[in-house]
Design a protein around this nucleic acid. Structure first.
Lengths: 245, 245
DNA sequence: ACTTAATTACCGAATATCGATAATTATGGC
DNA sequence: GCCATAATTATCGATATTCGGTAATTAAGT
């Protein structure tokens, strides 16, 4: 075993379906001696990546809440964009969830969201959940504004020649119209409408989107939603630029 | 250098005042060779604890957003309690911030909050920020419901003999009345009103509080606030107990 | 394209890790 | 509160990894 993966292998065991584990369970899952795991777990508890709880189980610890807070306080996109999500949802004029997502290394992730009480449907885009790169308006809008070489690097192992060309065409369309709309690409009967958002100086490639039910999109609501999304994107970009100082 | 602290020392450099650093800056701050730091940073970028950004700076990465999500989805307290914060704030009937905090190892930390739009004042209790153990209604309420031996262990190195006795008395009072009220102990001219909250089977020791401005607490508003806080605590405990299955 | 800075590769000495076993400390049941 | 049992920590030698200096490579800015 080597490096930081000693620890991240352990962390990866904890998720929605497995909120807590014993050392014996980790030992089994990772095929590593209990002796070693007790030592690693002890280190992780000391730095609060894990916490010891009842019945010799361990859980994720407060370090993650603390560093999430640090990200919220320091990330230029989150700082500039979060406050516009509620107004965007209102302006859209239909039951929707407004989200802010960004490219983070090789994944697109939702970093802030505002769910209207009326938006009762369930979306896959959830705060902190890594999303597919090539499906959904949110992801496509992010990629569309990337320099070509970054796109090729990202897609190198992901897409065939033809899908790559299809994607290039759709990215060109997004750049032309200023937004992207997809239907049922991520969740059945849901539509995503997203506008790209970037700041080259800060190295941020992102998008702002609204997710609505397919039946909410009519010739009447359409223009209002498109305008709201693209206008919000420009606004957030403006605020990010101000933050440079 | 040894163990996990190799990595956490680096993470600790990132905060509100230092959103991003170069390897040279880390090298300076940690008195470690750039050669070593480049290797460690590379590992951390690979697991998304850090992300590489413009001008050879590095930032905190998406792993923390992802694991924060996992905590939100799995922590019994957060799952049971968050939805009661908004009703609590409304029931309190004055401009307030409602928070859910818990003992996490050796620190009390706010794990969920609901700020009323009318609550314009600034509080030190913020999501993810470690709080002092011995000051403020929120922390005291958490400690008051702890078994005596745990309290002594926690206070071992923190308090003198006399403060320990004073604390023991205040904890007894909290247990008797079911809630705790402090004034200007954490933030000047702010009052915290907190009720303890625990579930022994889940090993959770927590509290639910409202923070208000001192002038909001009158003989008229008082009973309503006390009732709302203590009733909410009972309710959340009930929901946590249900989650055991 | 060219210059400079950033990042990775390489390598020997020093150090930490692994995991089996033994010792200690919590924990749960009376 | 005491005892049995499980959980956790300590020990230790062989082995693998880390450190950091320097060289090679890659990326960035002009």
């Amino acid at each position: 075993m080597m490096g930081i993966t000693r620890y991240t292998r352990i962390l990866a065991l904890f998720d929605e379906n497995r909120p807590s584990l014993t050392v014996a369970e980790m030992s089994e899952a990772l095929e590593t001696s209990a002796s070693t795991l007790y030592r690693l777990v002890r280190e992780m508890v000391a730095v609060e990546m894990l916490e010891s709880t009842v019945e010799s189980h361990y859980r994720l610890g407060p370090l993650f809440v603390e560093y999430y807070r640090r990200i919220v306080l320091t990330d230029p996109l989150i700082r500039s964009g979060t406050k516009f999500l509620e107004p965007l949802a209102t302006q859209a004029g239909v039951a929707c969830t407004a989200i802010l997502a960004r490219l983070y290394g090789k994944t697109v992730m939702c970093v802030a969201e505002h769910r209207m009480p009326a938006a009762t449907f369930k979306t896959s885009y959830e705060l902190g959940r890594p999303m597919p790169l090539l499906r959904g308006a949110t992801s496509k809008a992010v990629l569309s504004s990337l320099p070509k070489r970054n796109i090729t690097a990202l897609l190198a192992d992901k897409a065939s020649e033809e899908t790559r060309e299809a994607l290039a065409a759709s990215f060109a369309a997004i750049r032309k119209f200023g937004f992207c709309e997809t239907r049922s690409e991520v969740d059945r009967d849901l539509i995503g409408i997203a506008a790209p958002l970037r700041n080259a100086e800060l190295g941020i490639n992102a998008s702002v989107s609204v997710i609505i039910e397919a039946r909410s999109l009519t010739t009447e609501t359409q223009p209002q939603i498109y305008t709201a999304v693209t206008a919000t994107a420009r606004m957030i970009e403006g605020f990010m630029a101000e933050q440079l100082g």
